[in-house]
Each structure stands twice: as C-alpha cells, then as structure tokens.
Design a protein around this nucleic acid. Structure first.
Lengths: 239, 239
DNA sequence: GCTCATAACGGTACTACGTACCATTATGGT
DNA sequence: ACCATAATGGTACGTAGTACCGTTATGAGC
C-alpha cells in the first residue's frame, strides 16, 4: 500500500473539498485533515491556498521564458505563436483537471482574479520578446520615439495574441470545441495578419520598415493545397 | 478646527505610512492609529487594505458601464475610445495621487496584481460592448460560428485598446509625456485602423474575415528569392 | 542489522487581515 | 431638552500565511 506522494494527495483532497463545499468554505485545515497530513506540509508544497489549483504555473512560465530567450530573434512571431501553442497544449494535457479548475475559477472571484494575473505574466513575457524582435528586425531606430513606438506596438500585439488564445482556450474548456489547435492557429494568424507584421507598410510618417530585413515566412498548417498557397505567396511577395 | 472627513484622513495616513515604511510593513492598526480613528472605521470606508489605494475604481467602472450602455449602438468604436479617454482623464485629474499610487504599485507585487485585475474589468466591459456592436453593425449573422467570430474579434480588439491605453498611461505616470491625450488618441486610432473597423472589408488577397476557410498565410516582404521561399513553405506546410 | 546524515513531516505560536456584533458617541431637527 | 439616526469605537473570532523547532522516516555505507 504505497501511498501517493504528499503533494498529490493534498491537491486531490483540495479539489474534492472545493467541489463539495466550495472554495471559501474549505479551510487549509480541512484539506490537510482529509489528506492525512499536517498543516505545515501543505504550505511546504503550495505557497497559498490558491496555489493548489495553479500548481505548475511558474514552471510553465519559466519554461517559456527560456524557450523564447533561446529563440533566434529572426524567428519572430513564429516563436510567439509556438509559445502560445505550448500553453494551450499544456491545458490539453491536463485534460479533466483543467476543466475542473475552470469550473472553480468561473465561480470563485478570487480564483478568477488569480488567473487573470497569471495570464498577464505571459502577456508581459510576450510583450518583451516582441519588443526586442521589433527592434532588431523591423527597422526601427534607437531614438526614444522609436523605442516608444516599438513598446506600444509590442504591448498591443501581445495583448491581442493572449486574448485570442484565451478565447479559444475558454471555448475548449466549455466543451465547445474538441480540437482547439486549428482554431488557435487561425486566430493567432489573424492577429498577426491584422498587424501586418512586419510589413508595417510605409506609415504616413515615412518610417520605412523592413528595408534591411532578411527572410521571414510564417505558415500555419492548413487544409488548403500547396499550389493555392504558393500562388498566394507569389502574389504577396512578388509585389 | 474642523477636521477633514474620516475617509480622507485614513487615506492620507495610509499613503504617508506606505511611503515611510512600505506597504507590507504597515498594518491597518498603524493607519488607524495615525488617523486617530478606530480600526472598524477603516473597514467601513475601505473593503480592504489594498482598497485604500484604489478607492473610486468601482465607481468609475459603473460610470462607464452606464455610459456605454446608454450609447447608441451605431456610435461603435467611437464610444469605446471615449470611454477609454474617460479613464485617462480620471487619472489626469487625480494628478499627484495617481503618480503616488503608481510608485507603490510598481514596487509592491500584491498591488500590481490588484491593478491588473482592475484593468481586466474594463477590458471585459469593452469586449462585451464591442461584441454587441459588431453583431449589430458588421454584418455578422446569428449562427454559432458567427457569434464566436464576433466574440473573438471583440476580445482581441478590447485587449488591444486597453493595452494601448495602459501604455500611454504609464508613460504619463513616469513623467515621459506631459499631455498624454493626443498620444492616446493616436494610439487608439491606430488600433482601430489596424482592425479595419468598420467595414471589416476583405483584404486584398480575398480572405474575408467572415469566410469559413481555415487558411492563413503570412508573408513578409523580403529580399529572399521566391524559390527559396517556396521550398521553405513546402517544408513547413507539407509535413 | 546498525549508524548516521539528510530529507520529509508535524506541532506550536504568532502576526495580521477581514468579519460579526454590539456598545457608544456625535449630530441635527423639532 | 429630546429623540431618531448616522457615525464611530471595542471586542471577539476565524483563517491565511510565517517562523521556528522538534520528530519521524529514509536510505547510503559499513
């Protein structure tokens, strides 16, 4: 009768109790009692009561920070899209747990707030990466004004990407879509397209962008046949 | 010697103490002691210790909800822009207080989180309004698919608008711009323009927004020759 | 099997936020 | 002066989270 690790037993007890009597109505003592462990042990594994629901969030964030910082800068928005996909895939792998958490976060304001804060961290990470990428690849200079434009652009794009992800994710969490990845790709693709990255076709201010750039092509898996794609590509690039 | 209202004295004492010894190092008892009031009184005026820093946030949110819901639907993004401006103007009117709060939120994680949650509420409000507007004015139908597209679009736009606002607001809070309103208008204008609102006219390549295809190809103008591009495309898509 | 270092776990005490409830003191109108 | 009502104060309590130390398991080496 080898017992499960303490960490898991605690999480299990917590989820069960939250379902039974609600989040606020469950104390940490209740959880540890059911898990057959001491109160101290709980706080050793989870920083807070909320933390038991969002366990590997920090890990995921670090993981993505590495992933992005290790990415060669020319990969650009492709890297961001990939990173966003990683988040989605992580939820998919969680499966039922993710949906259980969603049921909780939908009902408990404190948990919803916590989740919002979490996604804001991702957004910030993306924003910083995009800003760096824009600086390197989009022909912006290093003047204060240019830096500000880059920062603004990066923040807006990051916000849009995260919003798109969250929308598709929630659809999956609610069971409105079985395989959300194609939808996600489509949604992210639209965001990227909408921002015309990094075409930024000569703005009125005359800042020519992308003059010195090298190759950057982003393609999403699609059911469209290759010939149609290539002709589209010719139409766009060949201009 | 007519004293100031209790509410104000509490806020004053709180801000002073936060500056002197930091947020976490200041207890509610410290605040009430300096204000010469009872602990109960503090919690009568402010729901929590954090709340003393973000006092009229709920009021502002309600105010904007009214403003938006009272707006005739055809006003569209103009109404959203106005609402965003209202938020900015509110900060400007606060003046030094807003900057003081910014100094605190920059240093104290708990307060930063709280602010993020606050802005998320605005974002949600905008998102709902934009979704309603898109449904009424952008030629979407009432099918499930269309409704989802509207919701996605609305959430992305709302996120972008809020991000733009926050960027300009932070610039002002840091003293990097004296009159942020023109910058704000410019930034919001760009967001609206980028999303091609209204009209949502089909892009040049013929992939209209409402179409049912799942194709997404993004190409950047590049100096690389077409053959290289095509082989890259094959490698990515053809897998 | 024994020893011992180390990791895992438990217990107690403490601080502080936030709530509930009731008592007390202004305040202003008649 | 009286009284209704609002504003304020006090006490007690529950609970999250921290600090600290004591106790028990675990496993490697002999």
């Amino acid at each position: 009768m080898s017992k499960k690790p303490a960490r898991d037993r605690l999480a299990e007890a917590a989820f069960d109790l939250f379902d039974e009597r609600g989040y606020e109505q469950t104390t940490v003592d209740d959880i540890t009692e059911r898990a057959g462990l001491g109160r101290t042990t709980f706080f050793r594994y989870y920083r807070s009561k909320e933390d038991v629901i969002f366990p590997d969030h920090d890990r995921l964030l670090e993981q993505m920070a590495e992933r992005l910082s290790a990415t060669s800068s020319e990969a650009g928005m492709l890297a961001v899209s990939d990173a966003v996909r990683v988040v989605m895939v992580h939820y998919l792998q969680e499966g039922k747990v993710a949906r259980r958490r969603y049921a909780l976060t939908s009902r408990v304001p404190a948990l919803r707030d916590r989740e919002i804060v979490s996604t804001a961290r991702y957004q910030r990470l993306f924003s910083e990466f995009i800003a760096a990428w824009l600086t390197d690849n989009a022909g912006y200079g290093r003047s204060d004004s240019d830096r500000d434009q880059v920062a603004l652009q990066a923040e807006v794009i990051a916000a849009a990407m995260v919003a798109a992800h969250n929308h598709v994710l929630r659809r999956w969490l609610r069971g409105q879509v079985q395989d959300p990845l194609p939808e996600l790709d489509k949604a992210l693709g639209r965001v990227i397209k909408v921002f015309a990255i990094p075409g930024l076709t000569p703005a009125g201010d005359g800042s020519s962008v992308g003059a010195t750039d090298d190759t950057a092509v982003i393609a999403f898996r699609t059911s469209t046949d290759l010939d149609t794609l290539i002709s589209s590509l010719k139409r766009i690039v060949g201009s």
